[in-house]
Amino acid sequence: MGAGAGRRDAEATRGAILRAARYLLARHAHADITLKAVAERAGVSAPLVLKYFGNKDALFARVMSFDTDAEALLDAPLDDLGRHMVRHVLLSQRELGADPILRIVFAPLQGEHGDVLRANFRGQVTARLAARLSGPDAALRAELAVATVLGLGVMVGIARGDQVRTVPVDDLVERYGPTVQAHLTAPRTDR
């Protein structure tokens, strides 16, 4: 096995551990989650979790960060960002079984850790998006666009809406993308 294969295996293991920790964090209070439970859910040993993340606090600091998720969510030119965001949320739900930014809805379960989750979300997702927008209400439009995408994520991943779960991704992107895009596009000033 070459070095590239080992690196891919390590990345896959790290990803499985993060997914397991996110899954558990969405269902249990931080204080009630053990490294053993994370390891079991990820299909690895607890010492391997420690090898990759050091300790529970370091693992959950990573889980509570939206930095990488926001990068993927916002990785499109502004004029196509609404459709991209919708596609990203839908594909995350369908392919991974979870939308990485949707975990913000579980912040109330987390006590003081919920405050960290909310602060990270505001700084790493909505503020990052607002910085890409123009106009005096850019921050508001960023929050509205993210709220719109989160609503879709809730309907698909939590409410498990029968209709939205059966419609092809491309059809939903074409129907819902313009709704998100409307918040991203600066209002015309020549009216």
Rank of each mutant, 00 (worst) to 15 (best):
A26M: 13
R27Q: 15
R27T: 14
H28Y: 10
H28W: 04
A29K: 06
A31I: 15
I33K: 02
T34R: 03
L35Y: 02
L35D: 15
K36M: 09
K36C: 08
V38F: 01
A39Y: 01
A42W: 00
V49M: 06
K51Y: 15
F53C: 14
K56L: 10
D57A: 14
A58D: 14
L59K: 07
A61F: 06
M64N: 14
F66A: 07
T68G: 12
A70L: 04
E71N: 07
A72Y: 00
A72I: 11
L74D: 06
P77I: 05
D80V: 13
H84E: 05
M85C: 11
V86K: 03
V86M: 04
R87Q: 10
H88G: 07
V89P: 01
L91K: 13
Q93F: 01
R94Q: 10
E95Y: 00
L96S: 13
L102H: 04
F106E: 09
A107H: 03
P108W: 00
L109S: 14
Q110V: 11
G111C: 08
G114A: 09
N120M: 05
F121Q: 11
R122K: 10
Q124R: 02
V125N: 00
T126W: 00
L133A: 09
G135Q: 03
G135H: 02
P136V: 10
P136Y: 04
D137Q: 12
